[in-house]
Design a protein around this nucleic acid. Structure first.
Lengths: 148, 148
DNA sequence: GCTGAACCTGCCGTTGACGTAAGGGACAGA
DNA sequence: TCTGTCCCTTACGTCAACGGCAGGTTCAGC
């Protein structure tokens, strides 16, 4: 149980920022835009971040650097993912009817597929870029070969 | 020969901008940063862009959106590519000695490989991102299957 | 030669994503 | 209780990548 408590560890904004690899200002800014909300606050009003929060920050950075989304678009993606989690919760709730469950799953699937399309098109572009680059490299290597 | 002339067609900044899918302001800004230089000017000083110039703009946008490079980094990449082209020219020049040629090719190869590393790491990250997403999608689909 | 559209060079404005400093409270350890 | 460090909110500053004028010039067609 002490392990469980250790797992529930909360961090101040300084520690959280350094673990997440961002600045404190960035964390406050993300919060301002509604991207994250620290899991708790001390009685005095100081932010306390959980590992879940840190993972969420990592996700934000990933969406930023990998897909080039701006923070508004990221907010939308995160809302979608939160919604999916919500759906999962309702899905496992005995009180949810079958028809309802199917609707929820369908919605969830649509959201995920939308994101997938975005990512896939990016990947395709990147692949063809890489192919071009490889062709160029091979040409140069072949030229060098002829001189070796 | 009229075909050749047609191929050499030059565009004003308005037409060039709309063809490249950017604004006139952006074209002037890229020029300010040394990313492009219109192939010519009229006697009165108006910019004239060639197809080569437009391709270069497309490349700038690609590096921007695909790799997330800023304009300074793009300037560096373009300088590298220009250098490679220069090298190719020298390479086919009879006046260039064998040792020199090999050095030029080596430099060219290094530049291309550097860029390749950047692109490849990005692709890897994107791939794992996509794999995660696919796993999520399959889970949802499986859940839906059980209800069909 | 005239006219309307396209273009020129400044140059200040804007937007997104934070940076940074001020003027205070909160907290943990001695 | 005191002290050093961490943290709070508020608010102005910054940097990249352009946007958008103003005031004058050039060009293409008639």
């Amino acid at each position: 149980m002490s392990d469980l408590l250790a797992d529930q560890q909360l961090f101040g904004i300084g520690e959280a920022a350094s673990r997440a690899g961002v600045t404190e200002r960035a964390l406050r800014y993300y919060q301002e835009l509604g991207l994250i909300e620290p899991s708790g606050r001390t009685k005095g009003g100081m932010r306390r971040y959980s590992q879940y929060d840190l993972d969420r920050v990592a996700r934000i950075r990933e969406l930023q650097s990998l897909l080039g989304l701006n923070l508004d678009e990221i907010a939308a993606v995160l809302r979608n993912e939160d919604r999916t989690a919500q759906i999962r919760a309702a899905y496992f709730d005995e009180g949810t009817g079958t028809v309802e469950k199917r609707a929820l799953l369908g919605e969830s699937l649509t959201l995920a597929r939308d994101l997938r399309r975005t990512v896939e098109s990016k990947r395709a572009a990147l692949d063809s870029f890489l192919a071009d680059l490889d062709a160029r490299i091979e040409k140069i290597e072949a030229a060098l070969e002829r001189y070796a």
